[in-house]
């Protein structure tokens, strides 16, 4: 630590937090869209892990980062489609369908990935603006990331804008808030929910691909290691608001990285207790946020998880 300035340390922790958080940002924002439309898909973990192997196998086959991302998006959406058919068309229970999707996804990715263990992906393209990356502090913090970090931020902005300011966003919210009323108004409830679910799957797939292409550019079974569940928690934590989901993911990533850094600094810590910290912090923040009461309640999509039956 001696040879490192405090600023460097802080920047390093922040950069580390962004890397740890980006898969969560992507998956949570996608799930947020689905939930805003009233669909509770607990299969995020399964969609992420399938996205991870899809992206990885594509980059091995083609060497192209763009095609790898595309493959992850397609695979994540395909998983979401499976869920949508089950939960929206066939009206199966959403909670159970989501859990089954996760089980299926973990198995499928392991089968798919059998030939890919031991390979590693080429380096993922980074933003390089001449000279800017070398600026002190801001250089690393703002200009030094891989492209997916910027893409994730752009997607959060796009989702926030679309939900709040576009007609489609209004329809999505209406469907999530009161599907019967939306149906009466002539909105295609099921179609909108399909779309939102697929967006959720696509972004979960991207989140998984971030793990297998950028964070640890290799494939290992079950490499998502529970991040899909955290993404689900973040959506509720964020009270269904995209920017809050981003902040929550960065907070979560920050706590995770901070505890690793504090160990690396040689501070006395209990690894097990520290590993609990992000979860306890999430509960604490949740309680604090929920005490605002009304605001949180107003944001919860009222029809979340409810099946829709067209009665006319």
């Amino acid at each position: 630590m001696e040879q490192f300035a405090l600023w460097d340390l802080i920047v390093n922790i922040l950069v580390g937090a962004m890397i740890a958080a980006t898969p969560l940002v992507l998956a949570a924002t996608g799930e947020l869209v689905a939930e805003r439309a009233g669909v509770l898909n607990l299969g995020v973990e399964g969609m992420m892990v399938v996205g991870a192997i899809a992206g990885f196998s594509a980059v091995i086959a083609t060497g192209s980062a763009a095609l790898a991302l595309l493959a992850a998006v397609v695979a994540g959406s395909a998983m979401a489609l499976l869920f949508a058919v089950l939960a929206l068309t066939l009206r199966a229970n959403q909670v159970a369908s989501g859990l089954a999707l996760t089980m299926f996804g973990l198995g499928l990715s392991a089968l798919w990935g059998q030939g890919y263990s031991g390979l590693s992906a080429p380096a993922f393209p980074r933003l390089s603006v001449a000279g800017l990356g070398d600026l002190p502090v801001v250089g690393k913090l703002v200009f030094g990331h891989d492209l997916l970090v910027y893409l994730s931020l752009a997607l959060v902005a796009a989702v926030a804008w679309a939900l709040a300011r576009t007609r489609l966003g209004l329809v999505v919210r209406a469907v999530g808030e009161n599907h019967d009323a939306a149906y009466t108004l002539g909105y295609p409830v099921i179609a909108v929910r399909y779309l939102a679910t697929l967006v959720g799957g696509a972004m979960a797939g991207l989140g998984g691909a971030y793990l297998s292409l950028v964070q640890t550019p290799l494939w290992v079974e079950r490499m998502t290691a529970g991040r899909g569940w955290i993404a689900l928690a973040l959506v509720v934590f964020a009270a269904w608001r995209p920017w809050r989901a981003l902040a929550g993911a960065y907070l979560f990533g920050g706590i995770t990285v901070l505890q690793l850094h504090s160990q690396a600094l040689g501070l006395k810590v209990d690894a097990q207790l520290l590993a609990m910290l992000p979860y306890l912090a999430t509960i604490a923040v949740l309680v604090a946020v929920s005490r605002e009461g009304v605001r949180l309640r107003l944001n919860a999509p009222a029809c979340l998880g409810k099946p829709f039956y067209a009665t006319a």
Binding site: V85, A100, F104, L111
Partner: peptide, 20 residues
């Protein structure tokens, strides 16, 4: 492989849930 069992279980659940 155990992964095949997980896939199989997943499918089984899908069909059970769908047929409801």
């Amino acid at each position: 492989p155990s992964a095949a069992t997980a896939v199989f279980q997943g499918m089984f659940l899908f069909f059970l849930l769908a047929s409801d």
